Computed example of a mutant assay.
Amino acid sequence: MSSQQDPRLFRDPWAKREAWRKHPVFARRAMFARAFPGFGVALVAFTTYVIAENMLTKGESH
């Protein structure tokens, strides 16, 4: 009996069909980035609005 095992013995027959799961398009970071489209633009626009409003109404009292 040889100490080395046959590499074909543990070969996965479904490896080609499961390869898409490791593709970069389906990475966790890419999925999260596409989960909220436009969130970055909306965050910048809202922040700009709040800063501009605070600067324009700084002298007025409520």
Rank of each mutant, 00 (worst) to 15 (best):
M1I: 03
S3Q: 08
Q4L: 13
Q4M: 02
Q4D: 09
Q5R: 14
Q5Y: 05
D6R: 12
D6F: 04
P7E: 13
P7K: 03
R8Q: 11
R8Y: 12
L9I: 05
L9P: 00
L9K: 14
L9S: 04
L9Y: 10
F10D: 08
R11A: 15
R11C: 00
R11P: 00
P13V: 12
P13M: 05
W14T: 08
W14C: 08
A15S: 12
A15H: 13
K16I: 05
K16F: 09
R17W: 13
A19N: 13
A19F: 04
W20N: 06
W20S: 09
R21P: 02
R21L: 09
K22G: 11
K22A: 00
K22Y: 09
H23P: 00
H23G: 00
H23I: 00
H23V: 03
P24H: 04
P24N: 04
V25W: 10
V25S: 11
F26V: 04
R28D: 09
R29I: 06
R29V: 02
R29W: 05
F32R: 10
F32H: 05
F32P: 00
F32L: 11
A33Y: 04
A33W: 04
R34I: 01
R34W: 09
A35P: 00
A35N: 02
A35T: 05
A35L: 10
F36K: 09
P37D: 02
P37E: 01
G38T: 06
G38Y: 02
F39A: 14
F39L: 10
F39Q: 10
F39H: 04
G40D: 13
G40L: 12
V41P: 08
V41N: 09
V41L: 15
V41G: 12
A42N: 01
A42P: 01
L43E: 11
L43G: 04
V44N: 03
V44L: 14
V44G: 07
A45Q: 15
A45M: 07
A45V: 14
A45C: 15
F46C: 11
F46N: 07
F46E: 11
T48W: 02
T48F: 14
T48A: 11
Y49M: 11
Y49Q: 11
Y49W: 15
Y49T: 15
Y49S: 09
V50S: 03
I51T: 12
I51N: 06
I51L: 14
A52T: 07
A52K: 01
A52H: 06
E53N: 15
N54L: 07
N54D: 05
M55Q: 02
L56S: 13
L56E: 12
L56I: 03
L56C: 01
K58G: 07
K58D: 09
G59A: 11
G59Y: 08
G59L: 08
G59S: 14
E60P: 01
E60V: 04
E60T: 05
E60M: 04
S61V: 10
S61T: 14
S61W: 12
H62A: 15
